Structures are given as structure tokens and as C-alpha cells.
Amino acid sequence: MPTPYFTLDAQLRFHDKWLKIDLQRVFSAEGLSEMWNEMVKDEEITFNGEESAHPEDCTDCFGTQKKDESNDKEKKEEEEVSTSVHHSIIETWDWGRQPDETELKDCLMVLVDDQQKLSAQMAKSTLSALRLRQRLVILERYLISLSHSMMEEKYKVRWKSPPSPPPPIVDNKRYALIH
């Protein structure tokens, strides 16, 4: 089952809110859930994968369902084609000539590659990996708010500072008389 891909869409109006949070709470399960749900509620997390953030907002759910079903069919067909290719190669070896060393290595590499892809996909879908990604996104959101606040303070300091005194006026006549 592929994990949903989500992106952070930090909005300016929530910067102050994120500066006031207790950042230590992101390391507890309850705090992580609350902060994540708050970001989803504020629509700062956008999903662009298998799942949608707001399925109730779907205007043409039947159309998207059909589209998802066709995507699923395409994925299944691709998997069937790749597995059938592997089976056909092995079947030809059973009844035909014995493969040489390079053919065996190629087949082994394909099998190892498939296994690595499957393992990586499963590792990404574990609960600990999902929570780690959520924590990182929340910390990124806090960092965005903090850097925006620092830039804002720098801007305010620059504009509130008293104007520098005008440079002293040099008396050219007096300077000319001395030399």
C-alpha cells in the first residue's frame, strides 16, 4: 500500500500561532497528533498521492473513483507484465537450453531490484517512518515561522532606528585659507 505524499503549504496568517507552540510536544504521541491535525485543519498540509485531505470536498467523486480504478488497473497490469516476464524467462530455462552466467546474473539483478523496491516501499509505510515525517514537517513549519519572524524584526529595526545625523558641513572657505 503506497503511502500518501504530502507537502507543506505554510500560510502567513498562521506564523504567530506556530511561534507560540511548545515545540517539545512534537515528541509525544498526543502532541504530535494535535499539531498534525491542526495543520491539516488549517489546510497547511496538502496531499498529492493516493489519499486526499478532504474527500468530502470532491465535486465529481464518481469521476475520480473511475480514474483511481483505471490507475489501479494500469498498476496491476504493469505488475502482471513484469512478473510474467520473469516467469517466462525462467520457464524457457526449464524446457530449453540452460542459461549462461550473464543471463543468470541479469535475472538475479532483476529479482534483487524488485525485492529492494518492495522493501523500501514497506519501510516507508511503517508507523515510525510516518511519525518521523510528520515530526519533520511540523519542525519545518516552526522553522518557517521563526525565520519569517526574524526577518520581520530585522525589517522593523531598520525602519524604526532614528535617522543618522547629517554629515558635517565642510567650510570650503576656511579649508582653502588654511592651505
Rank of each mutant, 00 (worst) to 15 (best):
T3N: 08
T7G: 10
D9Q: 14
D9L: 11
A10V: 12
Q11L: 11
Q11G: 02
Q11S: 04
F14Y: 15
F14M: 04
F14R: 12
H15T: 12
H15C: 09
L19K: 03
D22F: 05
D22M: 04
Q24E: 09
F27M: 02
A29W: 01
E30C: 00
G31M: 01
G31K: 03
G31S: 03
S33I: 01
S33T: 09
M35G: 01
M35S: 06
W36G: 06
W36D: 02
N37L: 04
N37S: 02
N37M: 01
V40T: 04
K41H: 10
E43K: 13
E43Y: 07
I45H: 09
N48G: 07
S52E: 13
A53M: 10
H54S: 02
E56R: 06
C58E: 13
C61I: 06
F62W: 13
F62N: 10
G63L: 07
T64S: 07
T64R: 13
K66R: 15
K66Q: 14
D68M: 12
E69T: 02
E69R: 04
S70E: 15
K73C: 06
K75F: 13
K76M: 04
E77L: 09
E78S: 08
E78T: 05
E78Q: 11
V81Q: 11
T83E: 07
S84I: 00
S84G: 08
H86P: 00
I89E: 14
E91K: 13
T92A: 11
W95S: 12
G96W: 08
G96L: 07
R97H: 05
Q98H: 06
P99F: 09
P99H: 10
E103L: 08
L104W: 02
K105E: 06
L108P: 01
M109G: 01
M109E: 11
V110F: 03
L111Y: 12
V112C: 02
V112L: 00
V112S: 01
D114A: 10
Q116T: 03
Q116M: 08
K117W: 07
L118T: 14
S119T: 06
Q121L: 12
Q121C: 07
M122I: 11
M122A: 09
K124D: 15
K124I: 00
K124P: 00
K124R: 14
T126D: 05
T126H: 07
S128W: 08
A129G: 00
L130E: 10
L130Y: 07
L132N: 12
R133N: 12
R133G: 04
Q134K: 15
R135K: 15
V137W: 05
L139F: 11
E140V: 00
L143A: 14
S145A: 15
L146K: 15
L146A: 12
L146D: 08
L146M: 13
L146N: 08
H148F: 03
S149M: 05
M151L: 09
E152D: 09
E153G: 08
K156W: 14
K156Y: 12
V157K: 15
V157D: 14
R158G: 05
W159P: 00
W159V: 11
W159R: 15
K160A: 04
P167V: 06
V170W: 08
V170C: 07
V170T: 11
K173F: 12
R174F: 13
Y175G: 00
L177V: 04
L177T: 05
I178L: 15
H179T: 07
H179D: 09
